[in-house]
Simulated assay, not measured.
Amino acid sequence: MKVYLLGFMGAGKSYWGKQLADHWQLPYYDLDEVIVEAEEMAIADIFATKGEDYFREKESTLLRELSMQENFLISCGGGTPCFQENMDFMNQHGTTIWLNPSLETMVERLQRKKNKRPLIADLEDKDLMGFVEKKLAERLPFYQQSRHIISSDNISLDTFTENL
């Protein structure tokens, strides 16, 4: 089984990725963590020192390397599907699942961990909803190509087994 979890920042990809990989007994990778380990620096520092283009190239390369395995679950970064033809690649090589909770849920989660996310670290809380709406609108055409879409704020392991 080859599974790619997709969604915006704060959608729950890392949380559910760990749960599902354990449940399905699959090797688990958080793509952002794999990049941090490979580069030996935080994502915010990669963006600041090497730029987003470099980050996206590295992300795409590592996504393809990890995908050579027989079985895995990868929690992708929020922007992963939007660059380097990654969405087409993931749909060709595995099962894509878009976690799509409400905007309010994602914004609430993001407010708690803003400092760990380079795209929003400098935003005021009052500006976060507008940013998420705008950025999500840009990414929707990619997310909507997912084979499975879970649009709920209240999901469980059963939600995945019922939808796949």
Results as ranks from 00 to 15, higher is better:
2 K>C: 02
4 Y>P: 00
5 L>N: 06
6 L>I: 14
7 G>H: 10
11 A>N: 01
14 S>D: 00
15 Y>S: 02
17 G>V: 02
21 A>P: 01
22 D>C: 00
23 H>I: 02
26 L>N: 04
26 L>D: 00
29 Y>G: 01
30 D>I: 02
32 D>Q: 09
34 V>E: 02
34 V>G: 04
38 A>K: 03
39 E>Q: 13
43 I>N: 05
45 D>H: 13
46 I>N: 01
46 I>R: 03
47 F>R: 01
49 T>F: 15
51 G>W: 09
54 Y>C: 09
55 F>Q: 06
56 R>D: 04
57 E>T: 13
62 L>D: 06
64 R>K: 15
68 M>C: 07
68 M>N: 15
68 M>I: 12
69 Q>N: 10
72 F>W: 06
73 L>S: 06
74 I>F: 09
80 T>N: 09
81 P>R: 14
84 Q>H: 13
85 E>P: 00
91 N>P: 08
91 N>L: 08
91 N>F: 02
93 H>G: 10
93 H>V: 11
94 G>V: 10
95 T>I: 07
96 T>Q: 07
96 T>G: 12
98 W>I: 03
100 N>F: 05
101 P>D: 14
101 P>R: 09
104 E>M: 12
112 R>E: 06
114 K>I: 12
119 L>R: 11
122 D>W: 05
124 E>K: 15
124 E>R: 15
124 E>M: 09
125 D>F: 07
126 K>H: 13
128 L>Q: 14
129 M>E: 15
129 M>I: 13
131 F>S: 12
138 E>S: 15
138 E>D: 15
142 F>Q: 10
144 Q>W: 09
145 Q>M: 10
147 R>M: 10
148 H>T: 13
148 H>K: 12
149 I>P: 01
154 N>Y: 02
155 I>P: 08
155 I>L: 04
156 S>L: 09
157 L>Y: 06
158 D>P: 00
158 D>W: 08
159 T>I: 03
159 T>V: 05
160 F>L: 11
161 T>G: 07
161 T>M: 08
164 L>R: 04
